[in-house]
Simulated assay, not measured.
Amino acid sequence: MITHHAEARLWLLSTPCTTSYAFQLDADDVPRHVHWGRPLSLEQAVAVAADLPAEDPGGDDPGGEEYVVEGGLRFGAPSLIVRFDDGVCGFEWRFVSHTVEENLLTLSFTDRVRSLGLDLNYRIRDGHDQIERWAVLTAGEPVDVLRFDSAAWTLPARDDYRVSHVVGEWGREFELRRDQVPVGETVFTSRLGITGQHAGPWLMLDAQDAAEGHGEVWSATLAWSGSRRITLRRDPYGRASWTGGFGHDGLVWKLDVGERLKTPVFTGLYAPDGALRPTWTVTLVAAVILGLGYGVYLAVDTALVTEVLPASADRGKDMALANLMTSLPFVLVPPIASVVLSSLGGYRSLFLCSAGMSVLGAVTVWKVKAVR
């Protein structure tokens, strides 16, 4: 559910189970983060916003912005960096309008001086607690885009924070790493151009007190399979935040008049009662069972394939063809899946396509009655 308090210039997104997310516009039209956590009513969110400090405790950085732009007293990592043809940089917020269509909220802004539009999008889904965010930039004059993140996420002040993320290599994918968040900036980036086992576009934060069944956890995943950067920041006053999106330092998108640039979705999830992860013992037992089962299946399946090949003289060629058919889906499926996800109905359609391919695969081997 999405609600709006016109007098406070505040919006509240409420997911079905565990989460409220609130932000507001200040007197200069700058969007400010208010709350991301346990459920609040609209009146409670307005009260929380009224208690927030008007400026940073140190007086040197306003902080707490919903989407960080370049310019003014801002010393954190910006989500948006633009440069116009005359060398002018920065973005000055001017609110235009907001729209709500079912579970999608869009706030439209423009620069106070230059012809540049920025839309911030928020979407919640029925039956889920995730919040999806992305941004759209529309050029009314030529502009270079040096950085354009999907979203920035802000957490409440805590005495300490711990970040969890995954790294790995072939055969050791998704190795969990957990580290204290230092004061300053920590960058999670990949310039490989694809999503691989080296570093996933996901991170999770807690106040060093979360476990399987207790403790607050905030996490986010970037829906992007190319080069990316997520910058995590912790200030001296206990606040943590991060901004992330596609691309990396050195890239420039050049927009001409009327052209638009849309970011990938950055999905955030708040869990009030633990990380909901399996215990280490269960993980080890599951790894043994899965490894044993898959090993037996692979050995039997390979032996069975050699017994049903049509001609013994062509087994080498046929096995090479079978290996190609096994590897080819890793090349073809990602672009096909991206089209299905973006234009043909999302994950429900993707799962239906997968089911259809499984049925088709079963049909193609129906004539194999037995081995020789």
Rank of each mutant, 00 (worst) to 15 (best):
L104I: 10
H33V: 07
C353A: 14
T99C: 11
S79V: 06
D60I: 14
G247H: 03
W153G: 03
W202C: 07
D111A: 08
W202N: 02
H165E: 11
D26T: 05
L222A: 02
K369A: 12
L255D: 00
D160L: 14
V288P: 04
T19P: 02
D29F: 04
G117M: 12
C17K: 14
V145H: 00
E141G: 04
D256P: 02
Q180A: 15
A303Q: 08
E7C: 09
V371D: 04
T19Y: 04
A157S: 12
P182G: 10
A275D: 02
R133D: 02
S327F: 11
G226Q: 01
T326D: 06
S358P: 07
P278T: 03
T364L: 13
E185S: 13
G200N: 14
E55C: 14
A45D: 02
D144P: 07
N323K: 09
T106M: 11
A220R: 00
D29G: 03
G258Q: 11
D86E: 07
L116M: 07
F75P: 01
G361H: 12
L344A: 10
G196K: 05
V48Q: 09
G291Q: 01
Y294H: 07
V252Q: 05
H33M: 07
L341Q: 01
G274N: 00
G140C: 11
V96Y: 09
E307M: 15
L276V: 06
N103T: 15
V300F: 08
V308E: 10
D318P: 04
L192Q: 14
S327V: 08
W253T: 02
E259M: 09
V181G: 06
N103P: 10
F84E: 05
R177K: 13
V163L: 10
S327T: 07
G356Q: 08
T18H: 12
A311M: 09
L192F: 13
Q197C: 11
F75G: 10
L13Y: 05
G291W: 04
T186L: 15
D129E: 10
L155T: 00
L255V: 02
V288K: 08
A311N: 11
A299R: 10
Q44L: 00
V163Q: 01
G238C: 03
V145I: 12
F84L: 01
Y21R: 07
I336S: 06
P78M: 06
A47S: 15
V68I: 14
V88W: 04
L104V: 12
G117L: 10
D301S: 13
P278I: 03
K262L: 13
A6K: 15
V265L: 10
D179I: 13
V340G: 06
A271G: 03
D249K: 14
S150R: 05
A223V: 09
A135Q: 08
S108Q: 13
V34W: 00
S225C: 12
D85P: 03
K254Q: 15
T99S: 15
E173I: 08
V288C: 15
T243I: 01
G244H: 00
L12H: 05
H4V: 15
Y67F: 15
T189C: 13
